[in-house]
């Protein structure tokens, strides 16, 4: 006699908590065979607003932590993800219709991507920063500093876990906080991944994940004055030029859409940094 399973309620991930959408809206997630798998919360603009508040309030301590500490926190995500590898493979197979092998590869790639970006946390400032030999008695140093709160639209047609990780990880490595909209039709891995985040050492509010329609949410990001940067990686099917136009109102930093999963790169980290140059007088007397 088979045991009756206990299904999970998938909710949002905001400020370290798992609230339902304030709108009460959900949408059905079906397997590739058309079977009902779960209801996902359909985030509203108010959920988005709350996420930005959470991300903003987490920014100071996250960006103020030591780079070594951030690197360890990101590595911890990889560790916890590794421990729940089987669950993610199962979800990916079920919702994305991937083969078990392809799903396993996606999960492994996602884990390895965390390890890669974790290692950057205490190095990108050395590679992208510099001491400047100015003509005068001044100490002068340029360092990349976090841009702030970054909103990301995860890839919508690629592996749901790997796509999400590929846009979140560089933002975190750069000491920013993030509000992410995962792949709309396969959001379950994102919420399961939020559970990973909640049980690793990521402080509350550093990552916020709101499942919902990119077309509905993205304009609110683009016009939000407290969002510092917008990664449109997965917004290729949207009217993303309009989003970029809206973002110009506050000179928000915008990264245009990419095909598929963004490649791991240092440029993705530094895209969400600002070069800060500090001068100080230098004298023996």
């Amino acid at each position: 006699m088979s045991r009756l399973a206990v299904p999970k309620t998938y909710k949002l991930f905001i400020g370290g908590k798992f609230p339902r959408s304030e709108s009460g809206r959900v949408y059905e997630i079906l397997s590739t065979k058309g079977d009902f798998v779960a209801n996902a919360a359909l985030a509203s603009r108010k959920d988005l607003r709350d996420s930005v508040v959470a991300a903003r309030s987490a920014l100071s301590s996250w960006s103020g932590a030591t780079a070594y500490n951030r690197g360890q926190v990101l590595y911890r995500i990889a560790e916890v993800l590794e421990g729940r590898r089987a669950q993610f493979i199962e979800e990916i197979v079920s919702v994305e219709g991937a083969t078990a092998a392809a799903a396993a590869k996606q999960v492994d790639d996602a884990i390895d991507l965390w390890v890669w970006y974790a290692g950057w946390a205490d190095k990108y400032t050395q590679v992208a920063g510099n001491a400047n030999p100015v003509s005068g008695p001044y100490f002068n140093l340029s360092v990349p500093e976090p841009t702030g709160v970054v909103a990301v639209i995860a890839p919508q047609a690629s592996g749901s876990l790997l796509g999400l990780v590929s846009v979140i990880a560089p933002v975190l490595a750069g000491a920013n906080t993030v509000v992410a909209v995962p792949r709309f039709d396969a959001p379950l891995t994102a919420i399961s991944f939020a559970e990973v985040l909640a049980t690793s050492d990521v402080p509350s509010g550093v990552v916020n994940i709101i499942t919902g329609k990119p077309a509905e949410l993205a304009p609110w990001f683009a016009s939000h004055a407290d969002v510092n940067a917008l990664d449109l990686a997965g917004a290729g099917d949207l009217d993303w030029v309009d989003l970029q136009i809206a973002a110009a109102e506050t000179l928000m930093r915008v990264l245009p859409p990419v095909e598929g999963v963004p490649a791991a790169s240092l440029a993705r980290i530094t895209a969400f940094t600002e070069t800060k140059t500090v001068w100080h007088t230098k004298s023996l007397i």
């Binding site: 400047n132 030999p133 100015v134 003509s135 005068g136 002068n140 340029s142 140059t277």
Partner: peptide, 8 residues
């Protein structure tokens, strides 16, 4: 203070 070697 401004200098060509110093990003602004």
């Amino acid at each position: 203070k401004f200098d060509p070697a110093s990003p602004f």
